[in-house]
Simulated scan of single mutants.
Amino acid sequence: MKIYTLHKKQNLPITLDEAWEFLSNPKNLKIITPDYMGFNILSGADKPMFSGQMIQYIVTPILGIPTKWVTEITHVQDKKYFVDEQRYGPYSLWHHKHFLKEIPGGIEMEDIIDYKIPMGILGQLVHPILVKPKLDEIFEYRRKKLIELFGEFQH
C-alpha cells in the first residue's frame, strides 16, 4: 500500500484572524479551486467549522466526470489548525492537515496531505502522470488566487 504526501507552504501578508476567517470557512473553498473542477457544495457548510462537521460536495477532478466527495472535519484548534478527512470520494485515503502560524509580516499557511490512490498497482502507475500533476496544478492555482486576494508576502 503506497501512501503519498503532498506538502505545501505559503506566506500571506494578513493577520492570523483574517487567515483563519477565510480558510476555515468551507464556502471559500470554491473561490480557491479552479473553475473547471465544477466545485459545488451540496451540504454541511452552513455553520462555522467544528469537529465532526460533514461537508458534501461535487467536484470534477479528472476527465470531466462529476464525483461526490464527503469530508469530515475531524480536528479543529482555533486559529492554529484543522484536519479534514475524506469519508467518501475518489481516494482510498485523504487526510489533509491545515496549519496556520503568525510570522513577522503575516502568516505561514502549511498543508500536509497524506493520500492513497485506489486500484492498487494501476493507481500507482496513474499517480505520476495524472493524479500528482493535477494536485500540483490545483495547489498552484490556490497559491496564485490567495496572492490575488490578499497580496504578495514581502520578506
Rank of each mutant, 00 (worst) to 15 (best):
W94T: 00
Y141F: 15
I117F: 03
T71E: 03
E110S: 10
R87T: 12
I107S: 06
G123E: 09
Q86N: 02
K68R: 15
E137N: 09
G120Q: 06
I113F: 08
M119C: 09
Q86V: 03
I117L: 07
Q124H: 14
Q86E: 10
P104H: 08
D114W: 08
H95P: 01
P128Q: 09
H95F: 10
H98D: 07
V83E: 03
E85Q: 14
H98G: 07
K68M: 14
H96G: 08
T71N: 03
K134E: 15
E137W: 10
K132T: 09
R142D: 02
D111N: 10
G105L: 09
G105F: 09
H127M: 08
Y91A: 04
E72W: 08
D84R: 01
K79Q: 13
H127L: 02
K68E: 15
E85C: 13
T71P: 00
F99M: 13
I103G: 02
K97I: 14
I138H: 03
P133I: 11
Y91E: 04
Y141H: 12
K68W: 07
I138R: 01
R142Q: 02
L130V: 15
R87G: 07
P128K: 09
Y115S: 04
M119L: 15
L130G: 05
V131R: 07
E140T: 15
M109T: 11
P104K: 11
T71W: 00
S92I: 00
D114I: 02
G120F: 01
G123Q: 10
L93Y: 02
V131K: 06
V83M: 05
P104D: 13
G89Y: 03
T74M: 06
D114K: 13
P128C: 08
E137T: 13
E72S: 08
K132C: 06
H127R: 05
F99L: 15
L100R: 07
F99K: 14
V126I: 15
L130H: 07
V126K: 05
I103S: 02
Y88L: 15
K132G: 06
L135C: 04
I121Q: 12
K101G: 03
E72C: 14
E72Y: 08
Q124R: 13
G89N: 04
K68I: 13
G106Y: 09
K80I: 05
L100Q: 06
D114R: 11
Q77W: 06
Y81W: 10
K116E: 10
G123A: 07
V70A: 07
F99R: 14
K101N: 12
R142W: 01
G105K: 09
V83W: 05
Y88T: 13
L122Q: 04
F139I: 10
I103K: 01
T71R: 00
I112C: 05
Y88F: 15
E140C: 06
S92C: 05
L122Y: 01
K68G: 11
V76M: 00
G106R: 05
Y141Q: 04
P90I: 11
D136V: 13
L135Q: 04
E102V: 14
I121K: 15
L93K: 12
I138S: 02
I138W: 04
R142S: 01
E137D: 14
H96M: 07
